[in-house]
Design a protein around this nucleic acid. Structure first.
Length: 245
DNA sequence: AATAACGTCAACCGCATTAAA
DNA sequence: TTTTAATGCGGTTGACGTTAT
């Protein structure tokens, strides 16, 4: 028994949204609020799949979206969060007000990924990539794998997470990284980007909670931040200061 | 000027998770 | 407890714009 399709595909539009469709969707959400995406298309007079409406609203039409280029602070924060969370774009987006998971995902794949690779940093593991090895000589011993990605972090449900003691007392995964103070103040004034986004704990921010990027690369000696992977403090990461290739 | 190659990003697809019956 | 429906998420695609040849 297969899953029923999310909508009548034969009677739905696909592809780019028209201005009229946008206006209908915005008007309907303004009048009735978000939610009930499945019934929204017919209620709003749209020949679209509910999922498509939701996506269009979240990624493009939401009034609290911040359009335009990513700032350097946002760049840093994305790298930092990705090093901790991996491809959990929605979690990363929850900590970047006005940005969507899709936007961040695209930005990562088109800009940041390449930037890290250009600096010899593996965008998956956030560690320096192994140096290139020549395989010209077939008799040469095969190189051993030097770097291996960290084991995947299981992501328990919120309820599980609350009930369990921390896996590692030294590593606080209750993320509290955020943009600098000024932007946090702005954040308090605006509604949260996502209803389910966890609020940032400012007291933890003051106590520390960031990840020093140099230390994460094993370059604590030239860093001098003192964190060395354990003392975590927000705002320490500045991968732009690392030498370009 | 033509066109191939590349980069960007909106949108789609399928699976996982959660909520409701 | 099980089944079904709805929603959310991440990976992928494809259209379009830009740059290089």
């Amino acid at each position: 028994m297969g899953r029923s399709p999310c909508c009548e595909k034969a009677h739905t539009n696909k592809g780019a949204w028209t201005r009229e469709e946008d206006e209908r969707l915005v008007a309907h959400v303004r009048a009735h609020g978000e939610g009930c995406w499945r019934s929204l298309p017919s209620a709003a007079g749209l020949l679209r799949c509910g999922k498509s409406c939701r996506l269009r609203w979240i990624n493009y039409l939401r009034p609290d979206l911040k359009r335009g280029n990513f700032t350097r602070d946002e760049d840093d924060l994305i790298v930092k969060l990705h090093s901790l969370l991996g491809n959990k774009w929605s979690l990363i987006a929850a900590r970047l007000p006005g940005r969507t998971d899709n936007e961040i995902k695209n930005y990562w794949n088109t800009h940041i990924r390449r930037k890290l690779l250009g600096r010899g940093i593996d965008p998956v593991t956030h560690r320096p990539v192994a140096t290139t090895v020549s395989f010209a000589d077939p008799d040469a011993p095969k190189p051993q794998l030097i770097l291996s990605p960290p084991p995947p972090l299981p992501l328990p449900s919120a309820r599980e997470e609350e009930s369990k003691p921390p896996r590692c007392p030294d590593l606080n995964l209750d993320l509290c990284i955020s943009l600098p103070f000024q932007q946090q103040e702005q954040e308090q004034e605006r509604p949260p980007a996502r209803a389910h986004a966890k609020p940032v704990k400012t007291e933890q921010l003051q106590q520390g909670g960031g990840l020093c990027f140099r230390c994460s690369l094993g370059r604590a000696a030239e860093c001098g931040c003192g964190s060395n992977f354990l003392g975590l403090r927000a705002g320490m990461l500045d991968f732009r200061s690392l030498p370009m290739k």
